[in-house]
Design a protein around this nucleic acid. Structure first.
Length: 269
DNA sequence: ACCCAGGAAATTC
DNA sequence: GAATTTCATGGG
């Protein structure tokens, strides 16, 4: 299907800016990936988004929200750009970034895997997790395994994905989510500090992983995760600002800054 | 061999 | 309590 008049959306910028780990760019420039158990192929032609392998119903019920197409990123960029010239520059550098509405458990699990790790290897571990424990859709595309399925595993069972010391963290998260001790849809509605504390009941989840889960999995756009890149960026590029100064869309600002920083490492030499 | 990676737990002071 | 060390794994 074709969706016209899509602004402020670039597939490469959004799908490969460090917020999601499972979208693959094809040789022809299209992207293929799985979410909500569905495999789709995406391409962009000017302001037209072309989605293959999707029904109209799935677009309305899943993908429009997944790609956050209802939110006016143009206005948000205008407001954020007033806050700081370097933020304005970062937003201009990748004006097509949007914050995805990823599935909560997938985001939680992915960012547990992300700790003290690099992005290429995070992608590899997540991919092996899906290959080993998800359900095959077609070719090398698999669903993300449910928390229930992972909760039944032991660290030895997870050995093939080579997550290292994170294996027991993944399992602890799965147990608490699958067992109902943590209800991610309730966390979505909690006040931000309470939500963080709830997620941090999981072994292996600290402030940073909690904030990433809230921003990328529960769409809490005011969350401003501070990883090593963002700490460097704040110290070097925004010394007079604090995370809270970026406001209710601070998470979007954070993503512009994170991506801009990662693409310009020379700024921090 | 050494260092780092979208950190957090375990140990030590 | 705050600072330091350790934790698997892979790539440069």
């Amino acid at each position: 299907m074709r969706v016209e008049n899509i602004k402020d959306f670039d597939l490469a910028q959004t799908l490969d800016c460090g917020q999601a780990f499972r979208w693959r760019e094809q040789e022809d420039g299209s992207f293929r990936g799985v979410a909500h158990g569905r495999l789709i192929t995406l391409r962009k032609d000017d302001e037209t988004l072309i989605i293959d392998g999707v029904s109209d119903g799935d677009y309305d019920s899943i993908w429009r929200n997944y790609f956050d197409l209802e939110l006016d990123y143009g206005s948000i960029k205008t407001e954020l750009s007033k806050l700081h010239p370097t933020l304005s520059e970062a937003a201009k550098f990748a004006p097509g970034i949007r914050i995805l509405n990823q599935e909560p458990w997938e985001a939680l699990c992915s960012f547990i895997i992300s700790q003290n790790n690099n992005i290429p290897r995070i992608k590899g571990i997540v991919e092996r997790l899906c290959q080993n424990f998800g359900e095959q859709i077609e070719d090398d595309f698999y669903t993300f395994p449910s928390a229930e399925k992972i909760a039944a595993m032991t660290p030895d069972d997870l050995a093939p994905i080579r997550a290292g010391f994170r294996a027991r963290y993944i399992i602890d998260g799965a147990e608490k989510v699958a067992g109902g001790e943590i209800n991610l849809e309730e966390v979505r509605e909690m006040e931000i500090e309470e939500a963080r504390k709830e997620l941090m009941k999981i072994t292996g989840v600290g402030v940073k992983v909690a904030d990433c889960t809230l921003l990328y999995g529960l769409h809490r756009l005011d969350c401003f995760p501070l990883d090593v890149w963002m700490k460097r960026a704040m110290a070097t590029l925004f010394p007079e600002m604090k995370p809270g100064d970026f406001g209710k869309y601070g998470g979007i600002a954070q993503q512009y800054i994170f991506h801009y920083s990662r693409m310009h490492p020379e700024l921090f030499e």
